[in-house]
Amino acid sequence: MIPNFDSIISISLKIFTLIGLGVYFIFALIVVKQVSVMSQNIHDLYNSHLRIFSYFHLLFSVLVILLAIFLL
């Protein structure tokens, strides 16, 4: 039985994409943590806005992972 190389390649590509997006999710978590640490050191008017942006970035990475799971 000849293996379907297209499906193997497609599955491999999907796995590597999901692994890459998973690593990126960890990076987004680190960004959230570091913005929190920086905000503790320096108190300014826009600290809350920057925290919101970091959470938005984390949410965006989760959405892209979900997109990759359902679309690929």
Binding site: Y24, A28, H57, F60, S61, L63, V64, L67, A68, L71
Partner: peptide, 13 residues
Amino acid sequence: FVFVAFWYLITFA
């Protein structure tokens, strides 16, 4: 489509 979404994610980061 996923590549473009990931590209914008990287740009934002």
